[in-house]
């Protein structure tokens, strides 16, 4: 079987200037009920890895520096 690489915009974005994942913070990753966020170990920043969002907001509300922003997924907007 052959697979395609399709691009998709993700609802959760991280302001890398504010993100303090490199200081040990994993709050947004921990609170996501669907386990969609991850820390990019090279950059030391959080990012949305999978587009499977319930726009439920704990990642944004619990972020200690206000770095995370949740948009309504485009298909619903």
């Amino acid at each position: 079987m052959t697979y395609a690489t399709q691009r998709t915009t993700v609802p959760v974005t991280v302001d890398e200037d504010k993100c303090i994942a490199h200081k040990g913070c994993t709050v947004c990753v921990d609170v996501c009920p669907l386990d969609l966020l991850a820390i990019d170990m090279l950059k030391g920043k959080a990012y949305m890895k999978y587009d499977e969002c319930w726009y439920c907001m704990p990642c944004e509300k619990d972020c200690p520096t206000g770095a995370v922003h949740v948009d309504i997924p485009y298909l619903l907007r």
């Binding site: 913070c25 990753v29 921990d30 991850a38 200690p64």
Partner: peptide, 26 residues
């Protein structure tokens, strides 16, 4: 290049005493 976040290294006691206030806060 990502790691299971809940298993990030760093002893909690050491981080509570870190020189960086943000590390202590987390």
């Amino acid at each position: 290049n990502f790691q299971a976040a809940e298993s990030l290294p760093g002893d909690l006691t050491a981080r509570l005493a870190d020189a960086d206030a943000e590390v202590r806060r987390i």
